[in-house]
Amino acid sequence: MNQLTVTQALANAQTLGLERLDGQLLLLYALGKPGDARAWLLAHDTDELNDEITQAFRALSLRRASGEPLAYIVGSKEFFGLKLQVDSRVLVPRPDTETLVQWSLDLLQAPGIPATPEILDLGTGSGAIALAIAHSLQSAGRQAHILAVDASADALLVARENARQLALNVAFLESHWLHKVSGHFHLIVSNPPYIAAADPHLAALAHEPLAALTAGEDGLNDIRQIIEQAPAHLRPGGWLLLEHGYDQAERVHDLLARQGFLEVQSRQDLAGIARCSGGQWPASSDQPETAG
């Protein structure tokens, strides 16, 4: 049997329906090389692969062709400059969520925010948001008290391991949203489930945990709960920031305003879509706690 060259193996992967980049990353993984070594593949395009590598690469390619996320196959995903370990216990961190992290960091620089703010991440999953905020603040010479919450004990195992590997100081708590949370925070941030239960796009996400994706008929059940529960845990002037679906900004704005939040606004993702919305809890005691 003739051995395949690097070029031939990548061409075979494309016949299975893989994007060229996915094929390159999977081949590098099979070869035991880092994902940023794509230049090596170009320099060694005529190198022949041994049978073990060829078989391993084909098995990986078939998994990807079946729809399994690349991050689950290689076991990691980069998010906000951090390499996070991920598997089927957690959602794969998306670039869109980096918008939420950057907005959080911008708010944490605002006047009135203490040097060591209290931050709560709801539905932390792999720990992506909490760890990205912690790392960014640490890199800027700041500290924070960050609590990351998830209802899934399995997800928290992943998040804790990521925190350990990155040597970042984040506390973790198993809780359904704010049910077991105590204390008050300058910032509450969340990327909750927001896909409608009957959304046809769910078929493409079959390998990821369904409970971390869907939230009732309109996709807003969890967002409603968070907006209702957050005021009891926000310091005066504190912010609640939420990621949501591409078409949900207007409805989330309405929920925030009706609950009594001020300065309700959105931030756009890289595609120019209003992907995150948030509001500020009133700083003065004469403001109503709820509205509507």
Rank of each mutant, 00 (worst) to 15 (best):
E217Y: 09
Q138F: 13
A198I: 11
A115Q: 11
F57H: 09
P95E: 15
S175V: 06
E208P: 04
W281Y: 08
E250R: 14
G23R: 04
P193K: 05
L27W: 04
Q229K: 09
R164Q: 08
R142W: 09
H253Y: 04
A232E: 11
L60D: 02
P231W: 07
E52R: 14
D87Q: 03
F80L: 12
A212N: 00
G260I: 04
L234G: 06
Q109H: 07
A39D: 13
L173N: 11
I195E: 06
I227G: 04
N50K: 12
A283T: 07
G75I: 03
S76A: 12
I113N: 03
G75A: 03
R142I: 04
H135L: 12
G272H: 07
Q143P: 08
R235T: 15
L70Q: 10
R235C: 14
V86W: 00
H244A: 09
S152V: 01
I195Q: 09
L10R: 04
A13R: 09
Y246H: 11
T5F: 08
L82V: 05
L262I: 11
N169K: 14
T54M: 10
P69R: 12
H186A: 06
A291F: 08
A43D: 06
L234D: 03
K33H: 15
T214V: 05
L166G: 05
P209T: 05
S136Q: 08
L120F: 02
L178T: 01
R94P: 03
T7C: 14
H186W: 08
L234S: 02
H244N: 10
A257W: 01
P69D: 10
S66A: 13
P288L: 02
L100K: 04
A110H: 06
A291R: 12
E174W: 13
L108D: 01
T99K: 02
D121P: 02
Q265V: 10
T290N: 13
E289C: 15
G123W: 00
A211T: 13
N50T: 10
Q24N: 07
G32Y: 10
G67A: 08
A13I: 11
F79W: 05
D22Y: 08
V189F: 03
A151K: 10
A232Q: 12
D36E: 13
L220P: 00
A230P: 07
N2P: 15
Q229W: 06
Q85M: 14
N162R: 03
A130C: 09
E78S: 13
P69C: 11
R164G: 13
D36H: 10
F185L: 02
P93D: 09
F80E: 07
P193D: 03
A144C: 07
V149M: 02
V181K: 01
D154W: 02
R275F: 07
E217V: 08
A140D: 11
L25I: 13
D269F: 02
L27F: 09
